[in-house]
Design a protein around this nucleic acid. Structure first.
Length: 523
RNA sequence: GCCCCCAUAGUCUAGCGGCCCAGGACGUCACCCUUUCAAGGUGAAGAUCGCGGGUUCGAAUCCCGCUGGGGGUACCA
């Protein structure tokens, strides 16, 4: 546990007594990306951690941005809830939770956006545009041909009111565009990077309301953040280029903009945005691949944030205690699967209790048919699972490694293995066979659940046979586990238990006899 | 092309003008422990602080330029 730091109020926090409200606003167009997961984490840590530590109310809300009817993916919203819940984040307001400033699903707020678009039009900050997609495409191509920067040519910006009315009357489809100031500049204050200055002339008139009546991100996000009393916007770096538009929108509405903080991008190992091509990139994939949420959280927290450059292990409580938005770095970070695996291994081996680990292993082992899926702490299968977990936890990098590594403990029959494995390198098959027979006899009157007794007996046997202990232990290991790598031999024997030890030794001896005959006849 | 962001070892990072000829972690390598493999322990290699100019008694730290990487450039978010 890390001691809480003496907290001096950061400059980006509101005056004492005023609340901090942040939101995570994913669109339900697929599974939740780790980049989104990290943004949600930082949102949550800021609201529930930093803000509350400093004596302010901190609220974390979830808003579903489903304004693109063409990209909606069925079940995606539920998937987002599941991913965030699994990750360990809880939200105070959201579509499923309700709250004072809902609804929290944008498709239920369309009237609101339309009203606000009209307000902008009436104030001269926006206008109806009747340009067809075909015309827009043509303009774009012409601009490219002339090597001009692409962008809307403001064709409809100064249509006279009569034309607009006539077009609307005749049912011509239209969008609402923002009337960006044509000169001057817009200053965006980013909490992480400082001030960014844009020349207004380089920003075109973006669409606010689409022809299907739904808003674009720009309008919906500004209207909702204001109406939901959001104080700080945490979002990905990819939003920096549209930040000036948003700032202009706040100004056009006469609203005070929230504090903006753009989180550094998460890059793929080869460069570029992290995607499916680079292995897992969605929260649910990490879950399915056997990563535990505590480890993922620890790893993700350190991608872009650090406490002191020294401390590496942070529990969820540590993070709530120590995270500060001000220490988030502006530079993009490359996702390193190897380091994530290290964290996961560390949590499995050193942080989780054995009982906890055993329980988390159940879904993975059940899928492989190794334990009943209903296995719980009081299930008859649990004690063996627990013992198996204790034995193998130091070589589990992910929960998904368990079926392969623990099969020999959880099943009575061993998977078929190559008889040659029984014979150590540079050892004689016949001598090995005799040694195993001797082991069989020696173990007949030894209680294998007594590790010390078993070890004493087998070491003595090795001496009697004139073998090095390791030479004798390897054939036993293979006979009992079916593989050349296993936990310590004596603890393995203990957990496998007397009956299976006996049966597996007999099976190994039989296998070696057959193998010997075959190699003789092959000569 | 245009706009914008970023820049300390392969990777994540500490550093916010002298404590740094640069600290921690992952990865890599070696050794130790040892019945195998892990885990663990110890140690090593690895960064002309992207390059070039300034500012300063003094720069990884401040300023400018360049280069490189990345993002944006949709009636997607």
């Amino acid at each position: 546990m890390i001691a809480p730091a003496a907290e001096t109020a950061a400059s980006y926090l509101p005056p004492a007594g005023a609340p901090v409200r942040v939101r995570f606003a994913p669109s339900p167009t697929g599974s939740l990306h780790v980049g989104g997961g990290r943004t949600a984490l930082f949102d949550w840590l800021f609201a529930h951690g930093e803000a509350r530590r400093s004596g302010r109310d901190g609220a974390f809300l979830l808003r579903i941005e489903d304004t693109d009817q063409n990209r909606l993916v069925e079940g995606a919203t539920q998937g987002i809830y599941d991913a965030l819940s699994w990750f360990g984040l809880t939200w105070d307001e959201g579509p499923d939770k309700g709250g004072p400033l809902g609804p929290y699903t944008q498709s239920e707020r369309t009237a609101l956006y339309q009203e606000h678009a009209e307000t902008l039009i009436s104030r001269g900050h926006a206008y109806r545009c009747f340009c067809t997609p075909e015309r827009l495409e043509r303009v774009r191509q012409e601009q490219q041909a002339r090597k001009e920067p692409p962008g809307y040519d403001r064709h409809c910006r100064d249509l006279d009111p009569a034309t607009v009315a006539a077009n609307r009357e005749s049912g011509l489809p239209s969008v609402v565009r923002f009337a960006m100031p044509r000169d001057g500049e817009t200053r965006v204050h980013d909490l992480i990077r400082g001030e960014i200055v844009y020349r207004n002339a380089t920003i075109d008139d973006r669409v606010l309301l689409k022809s299907d009546g739904f808003p674009t991100y720009h309008l919906a996000n500004v209207v909702d953040d204001h109406l939901m009393a959001i104080t700080h916007i945490l979002r990905g770096d990819e939003w920096i280029p549209t930040a000036p538009l948003h700032i202009r929108l706040y100004a056009a509405f006469g609203w005070e903009p929230p504090i903006l903080a753009h989180m550094p991008l998460i890059l793929a190992p080869g460069g570029g945005k992290l995607s499916k091509r680079h292995g897992a990139s969605a929260m649910e994939e990490f879950r399915a691949n056997g990563f535990i949420p505590e480890a993922l959280m620890n790893y993700l927290a350190l991608l872009g944030w650090s406490l002191d450059g020294e401390t590496e292990i942070f529990s969820k409580d540590d993070l709530l205690e120590r995270f500060t938005l001000g220490r988030v770095s502006p530079s993009p970070a490359t996702f390193d699967h190897a380091k994530l695996r290290w964290f996961n291994q560390h949590y499995i081996n050193h942080v989780l209790s054995v009982g906890d680990l055993a329980l988390r292993l159940v879904p993975f082992l059940a899928d492989a048919g190794l334990v009943p899926s209903e296995t719980g702490p009081n299930h008859p299968a649990f004690p063996l699972l627990r013992d198996a977990s204790a034995l193998l936890k130091d070589r589990l990098e992910t929960l998904a490694d368990a079926p392969d590594l623990m099969g020999f403990l959880l099943r009575d029959e061993l998977d078929p293995y190559d008889a040659a494995l029984l014979v150590p390198k540079k050892a004689d098959p016949l001598a090995t066979l005799e040694a195993l027979v001797a082991v069989q006899e020696a173990l007949a009157d030894v209680d294998v659940t007594d590790e010390a007794a078993t070890e004493a007996r087998l070491r003595a046997l090795a001496e009697t046979l004139g073998m090095k202990a390791g030479q004798l232990f390897m054939p036993i290991r293979v006979a009992i586990t079916g593989r050349t790598q296993s936990p310590g031999l004596f603890e393995t024997l203990r957990v496998v238990g007397p009956d299976r030890v006996r049966a597996r030794l007999a099976a190994a001896i039989a296998l070696l006899r057959r193998h010997g005959d075959e190699s003789l006849s092959a000569d």
